[in-house]
């Protein structure tokens, strides 16, 4: 299955990528597994390895990292929000 991934703010700048469509290996079935899969690409993707300053949304809803992924999901990784 494949998912659409978005990156925002400082994370987008650090990665130099704002979005990509990715076909997932069969063992990548959760947000946490996707994060590990991306972080394993090496620099600068290891920025995703720490969850301390990382938030995630699936289909435009903020979720926990244990959330399961489904085909065609829209996943977004970003730093804690700072609006208002």
């Amino acid at each position: 299955m494949s998912v659409k991934i978005y990156f925002f703010a400082g994370l987008r700048e650090a990665l130099g990528v704002s979005s990509e469509t990715l076909a997932l290996p069969t063992d990548v079935t959760s947000v946490a597994a996707l994060r590990d899969h991306l972080a394993a690409r090496g620099e600068p993707w290891s920025a995703l390895a720490s969850t301390r300053n990382l938030r995630v949304a699936v289909n435009q809803q903020m979720v926990g990292f244990d959330t399961a992924l489904h085909a065609e999901d829209e996943v977004a990784f970003f730093p804690p929000v700072t609006g208002g």
Partner: peptide
């Protein structure tokens, strides 16, 4: 307002004399 500050996906970047700087969450 309180929930907007922590849940709505906005990010602020400040222009400072030293260049752009993403604001840290408080």
């Amino acid at each position: 307002m309180d929930y907007l500050k922590t849940r709505a996906p906005f990010w602020k970047k400040e222009d400072t004399p030293a260049g752009g700087r993403w604001v840290d969450a408080r």
